[in-house]
Design a protein around this nucleic acid. Sequence first.
DNA 1: TTTGGTACTTTGTACAACAAGGTAGTATTT
DNA 2: AAATACTACCTTGTTGTACAAAGTACCAAA
Lengths: 130, 130
Amino acid sequence: MVIDKRDMENQEYNKELELNAENIKAQMRKGVLEYCILSILRKGDSYVSPLISELKAAKMIVVEGTLYPLLARQKNQGLLSYRWEESPSGPPRKYYSLTEKGHKALEVMDEAWSEVVKTVDYIKTGLENR
Amino acid sequence: MVIDKRDMENQEYNKELELNAENIKAQMRKGVLEYCILSILRKGDSYVSPLISELKAAKMIVVEGTLYPLLARQKNQGLLSYRWEESPSGPPRKYYSLTEKGHKALEVMDEAWSEVVKTVDYIKTGLENR
DNA sequence: TTTGGTACTTTGTACAACAAGGTAGTATTT
DNA sequence: AAATACTACCTTGTTGTACAAAGTACCAAA
């Protein structure tokens, strides 16, 4: 067994990275965001500001710079459509709604999400609960 | 309400992106991977090949190129340590184990994960179940 | 007409996952 | 003993996503 060559510690950064719950949650939320957006829109059409508010209320913080590109992506995938509506005060609002394709995608995601939850549980316990 | 300038459809890609369950699940798994690795190691020390197998068995597919940098990261954060062990057949194996810091991080992640699950449920239902 | 608020958009950066290829030690076959 | 196969570890370059920050545009009220 010859190890020495391999065992040369590759740069001990060890940057005392915060072991902070918020950071870790932020990591986990990634990838679930799309699902959340569609889930909210399932309950009714909306535009960016109230979307952010609702996500914030659910402790799933996002910012405009995240949401706009994401909505554009989902629109380009045909999951969303939008219409302009006048605002009682301020510039017009871009209301997004789920398309039929979006509804179908959402159903797939419902399934995917519950599978991921089941998978994590499986990995944690190692038991055959699936 | 002047809309025309804004409403110029920005590149209608609409690339018939697979509405495939695997893709969506892959997206959702991101960010949960670190948690899964630590969870597996909590059950006992291991090295890359069996880690990949266990993840694959749980339908959480990853490849070597993903896992090695991830483990290196977690080691540099002080969450993991490793030791070399001879193999009954083949090159030596790098066994990873949770450090004390890793155990603490894992507890934080346990909490974080269940919060994310609760959050998604909250967003889906919109009810006050938290 | 200027100020402030709301809303939408873009640009640049950081980081994570992946694909693909590379290095190295051990065992087996010829 | 040379070649082959297998296992295991590691690196590089690409892509995609979230974010920070700055920018554009419309509207209302002082």
